[in-house]
Structure formats: C-alpha cells, structure tokens
Amino acid sequence: MADRTHTAGGWAAFRKGEEGAVLVEFALMLPVMLLVFAVIIEGGRMMWSYQAAISGVRDAARYLARVAPQNICSSGGSVDAHQPQLLEIVRESVTGDALFPASLAVTSVTPGLTCQAGSYRVSPAPVVSVRANLTMTFPFAGVFELNGGSRATINTVITDQSRVFGT
C-alpha cells in the first residue's frame, strides 16, 4: 500500500512540475519564429534587389537615350547594336555585395525604339525603351517549403523608356 501512495504522489508531483515547460513552448514556437525571420529577411532582400534592378534598367535607358542619334527616326536606324552594353549596365547594378549577395539573374535585356509624332522640337520624336527579364531566387526557399510554400524563384520584367537626346 505504501508503494501505491508513493507512486501516486510521485505522479501528481510530476504532473504539477513545470521545469520543462519553457523548453516545450520554445520547441513549439521555433518553426514559426524561423518562418517569420525568413520572411523578413527575404522580403528585405527582394525589395533591395528589385530597386537595384529598377535603377539599372533606368540607367540603361538613359545611356541608350544619350548614345542614339537624335535623327534616328528620320534616318531609319536601330538601337539593337547597343544590347551588349545595356546588358552589362543592368547586370552591374544587380551584382550585390558581400552583405547582400545578388539574388537576381538578368536573363535578357531588349532595347526598343518608337517614333512618336507630336508637337516636339523634332517630329517624330524618338523614344527608346529598355526591357529586362529577371529571375529572383530565394536562399531561404527550404524554410518556405517546410511550411507549405513552393516558390523558389520569381520571374519578372522591368521596363523603362527615355526620349532620345542624341549625340
């Protein structure tokens, strides 16, 4: 009979003990905390990379607007020959650094030219555009997959245009 009360008393003491409660709560919250951390880091990197890509495409459009001749619409020229320089400008802007390595890959850059009629000093006015196709990869994609996500990459297109000032 003494063994039963000792066992029953030991079981009641075990049930009332709270020594491991903090560890159990931490184990339950760790996946949620990791997911929140990964979303914050990836969101910040995505915005930083996207802004760098927008800046690169804008710089490429400005470069193209300066090197294209002002009379390109009347002379019938093309801006396709400048594609390698434009690709290099966009790639250089999204390379990143040691703290935030690049998560963007520039898949293609396409220059374009439209001649817009209107009340410009030169009619039709040449307007160049730069279109960049980008692929963004997520280093924390494994954390997202653990929580039911399936996107490891995102494909996006950034375009910008500028009026030709000419050389």
Rank of each mutant, 00 (worst) to 15 (best):
V90F: 04
V79H: 10
M47V: 03
F37C: 12
L146T: 08
L64T: 06
P111L: 11
A68Y: 08
L99H: 00
T135R: 15
S108W: 12
L23G: 13
V36Y: 05
I154T: 11
T159M: 07
F165Y: 13
E19I: 13
S49K: 00
M29G: 14
S129P: 05
M33A: 15
A141M: 00
A61M: 10
S123K: 07
V106S: 06
T137M: 02
E92I: 06
L146H: 05
A60P: 11
V22M: 07
M33Y: 11
G149E: 03
S74V: 15
S150Q: 12
Y50D: 01
V79G: 05
S78E: 10
E25F: 10
I154V: 15
A61W: 10
P124A: 06
A68T: 15
S74G: 09
G20T: 12
P101Q: 03
A53E: 11
A27W: 07
E42L: 00
Q70W: 12
R121P: 11
G56C: 03
R131Q: 15
S150I: 06
F165N: 08
E18D: 15
S150G: 13
I54F: 07
A21L: 12
P69A: 05
L99A: 01
V32H: 04
R91S: 13
E42W: 00
R131S: 15
E19G: 12
M29Y: 05
N155Y: 03
A52D: 08
S123V: 14
I72K: 05
Q70D: 07
P69W: 02
V22A: 14
E25Q: 04
I41S: 01
G166H: 06
L104E: 01
V24C: 02
T156G: 08
I89D: 08
E25D: 05
G43S: 06
L99E: 00
I54Q: 14
L86I: 03
E88S: 15
E145M: 12
N71M: 06
P124G: 09
